[in-house]
Design a protein around this nucleic acid. Structure first.
Lengths: 351, 351
DNA sequence: ATGAAAGCGCTAACAG
DNA sequence: CTGTTAGCGCTTTCAT
């Protein structure tokens, strides 16, 4: 036996189809056919076995780059996330990744920092990298960029966002229903003067939650005070805090807040505290998303739970369908939220 | 003027180097040289201009796949993350991404779910995808896999983890120093009986924090009670809670806890509460990482802040150096933590 | 059922 | 300084 030389070990790295073909004593073309599930039937079963064995012995792994060059597919999907540090997105990413993996696709994630320009750059870069399709959580409702994409025929699905005209497939939660649950809870607790401190209405999440709030109030025979329906510029703690300050300083009466999301609700906690107001003693607060650790805030947060992981999986599923079966109409997948009651809400204390 | 046909619009998608060359009236080879920063000097400035203009007009974007096939580089790096839902990792990812972007590399992120098998699979899949190098946060200290990698000559850097023998480049925080800060704070507050409820010692973070604790105690003339130095199986809330229960039920006296990380500290909050113990009234708790929102927990958490974003950037930097300048010794980059004092620690109330 | 040959889009010798 | 040529590793006609 000859000793295995270092050279042998290194060579193992670059096992190519030719190597496999040579060892199996066939032409590279044949080896290619044997190795590929789809075309294996075109080749003698015995020969195929020999090729498979050779590939195994050599530790052959096809080079997807070379394959992609020929087939014009990269088995790669671009995932555009507005802010990976918002704890709402990691579960979505995990869902996407899990589903994509199953199908042999690799997600390529980019963080757009909520910046339209960066969004465009990332998008183009990914196109250049030949991604087969996109999943994006960054859609602004006016979506100039989305038009470009769709117009150009690249499969794309929205996750946790949607566009008004429903021309694009999406996987989202029913935001209107979610906020109505919040309003119902508060109304059941006896609250009548409820503020809504929401996110930007250019985002579907911002718009639909606001609409859900107004509809929910009306259903309960409550009149939303226009001065207490505010729209923040971003879904951040700071914006929530700012809006809450404004609401308090406006002098309008309110005993409860529905916040645009958990981050904004946290901002309300801070603003309330700064004004010496107790939560839920003086003001009840409801968040949105049930982000990780919201049960450990002070007080534990009452919020609406969204099945983020499932939303991610579903979005990937939708995209996979587009990829393998071509355009298909634009499915709007809507998952149901749940109310999680914790310590930031209390019955109105009629004085 | 002829109307722009749909066909024109679609063709734009597949602008190739040949198209640019044709429009500029040069050979594709020349066009390639003109387009590439590195080789532009080899071509007449005027010609180069013409090529650039043509590329611009056509909206040309080089196909990195084709380029990679030729150059054996994908300008892609694999990023292995053990648990993207742990809020400690997103900032690291952002740091990596930002630095890599600058250099024209794309990170490909995989979530290994802390599973050695999945780690191996992801790793191989990425190798097959021709990533140029790896950044990994998943290194177990025994690192069989890492040997495989290093042996095979793929550049790799560790982030937020390191191996004992320092054979691999890494960007980490000084965990020993960090924990000593925690011990010093507690000692300054008069605590003498301090428990350490840490993470798995197969991870460098687990091991070094434990060592830092013991060293820190000794420096202050305190004797760590072996029964109160515990090692959890994972860095999770549940493990922190379990360990804390055990510590309480052991009957040993302690008035303070240094936890393996913020998640474990949160678990301590829960366990303490379940036993009717107040934090910090009865027991002070110090976390580790200063993860997002730790200032909003109940009580706000005293913890050690780690510059995660910078750690990510530095790791990317290290890898880039390896990639562009070849092996370089194994640099161990160690960043400094900071103590953040909040509400979960209090002076010992001598009764 | 298999071999031969062309070519995906690009870069890198090598000429000239 | 620029054109020519070859080829990265793979798939896919087209022959045989």
């Amino acid at each position: 036996m000859l000793p295995v030389t270092a050279r042998n070990a290194k060579e193992q790295l670059r096992v190519t189809l030719r190597d496999v073909a040579r060892l199996a004593g066939v032409h590279p073309g044949t080896a290619s056919r044997a190795l590929n599930e789809q075309t294996r039937s075109l080749v003698n079963a015995e020969t195929a076995q020999r090729v498979l064995a050779a590939a195994d012995e050599l530790g052959y792994h096809p080079n997807p780059i070379a394959r992609g060059l020929k087939t014009n597919r990269s088995y790669t999907v671009g995932v555009l996330i507005p802010d990976i540090e918002n704890p709402l997105f990691p579960p979505i990413i995990r869902g996407i990744e899990d589903r994509l993996d199953q199908a042999g696709y690799t997600p390529v994630i980019a963080n757009t920092e909520n910046d339209a320009e960066r969004e465009r750059i990332d998008f183009r870069a990914m196109r250049a990298r030949q991604v087969d399709g996109f999943i994006t959580a960054t859609a602004r409702l006016d979506h100039e960029l989305l038009d470009e994409v769709a117009g150009v025929g690249v499969p794309l699905v929205l996750v946790n966002r949607r566009v008004e005209d429903e021309s694009l497939p999406s996987a989202t939660a029913d935001d209107r229903a979610g906020v109505r649950m919040a309003v119902d809870l508060l109304a059941d607790l006896g609250h009548e003067h409820i503020a809504f401190l929401g996110g930007p209405t250019e985002l579907s999440t911002g718009l639909q939650r606001k609409e859900g709030f107004i509809a929910g109030m009306q259903d309960r025979g409550l009149k939303p005070d226009p001065a207490l329906v505010a729209t923040g510029e971003r879904f951040t703690l700071d914006e929530g805090q700012r809006l809450c300050h404004e609401a308090i300083e406006s002098g309008r009466q309110f005993t409860a807040i529905v916040a645009g999301n958990d981050l904004m609700a946290l901002g309300c906690y801070d603003a309330l505290a700064e004004h010496g107001l107790a939560c839920p003693g003086d003001v009840s607060v409801v968040g949105y998303n049930d982000m990780p650790f919201s049960d450990h805030f002070n007080p534990p947060m009452t919020t609406i739970r969204i099945p983020h992981y499932e939303i991610g999986r579903s979005a990937a599923d939708l995209l996979l369908r587009l990829l393998e079966q071509g355009p298909d109409g634009s499915t709007q997948l809507v998952l149901e939220p749940t109310l999680v009651v914790r310590g930031s809400t209390a019955a109105l204390d009629k004085k």
